[in-house]
Amino acid sequence: MATSISARVANPAATTTSDAIVEVRDIGKRYGDIEALRGINLEFERGKLTTLLGPSGCGKTTLLKIIAGLVPATSGDIRVNGKVVTGPGPERAFVFQDFALMPWATVLRNVAFGLELKGIGLAERNRTARHYIAEVGLSGFEEKYPHELSGGMRQRVGIARAFAVNADVLLLDEPFSAVDEQNRRKFQEDLLMLVEKERKTFLFVTHSIEEAVYVSDRIVLLSPRPGRVSQIIEPSIDRSAAPDVIRRDKGYLDVVEEIWQGLRQYAE
């Protein structure tokens, strides 16, 4: 078998990579009395897909929103391309767990909305939007309204909208949670194709261990509240193999098992 899958468990302290596009420095977050995050230090390498994985309520969404600049951190700072950021910026785009589509706007206008806000002309932004609508496989649905689409299709609209603004970093909060199992696998493969094609940096939150191992270059395991980095795993998967081959590969299954063992201590 040509697939070579091995997992390198990295020491959280020694994650300094040469080409970090996003750096998370000592981030802590409190919501009143609740301490959601404590002492998070992470670096995200350009062009890689990193997954945040952890028990419910451990602060995955919070960390992603802090990186997006939507939620202020209580302590620490975020650097993007070496510069400290305090709010949302054009180099980051967010894909929302609940889609966040405007119900009164068509798919086309929703996808073009990031460009509309930037003041780009109608013809140009529609051209860009149509391109990304095709890219996520929704050609023919441009004039539909969100309520006419399935959950999975709505999520694709959200993804196309994030792609359309041509940000370097895409932040995706559980993008496939509204999708059934068969479609989920197809989406994961589509996502890998888009990662390959768009050459962007992806930060991805998921609840599914299999999904994390299948799509990620790097998996960050967070501990329960207050969320801390408990482990970083790099499943080196040879993505040239067929999806079915990968999913049955022993190495792949071993990584899944290893993560499961790591998370299990929190489940009890």
Binding site: P88, P90, R92, A93, F94, F96, M102, L117, V165
Partner: peptide
Amino acid sequence: VNPSLVDMCRSFQGSRLQQIFKIIIPDAT
């Protein structure tokens, strides 16, 4: 108004006026 839509507008660097006229008022209609 759906707070997630307001967050969405902020994440694409919408100004406060764009937020009011493109998100808040239409969603409140």
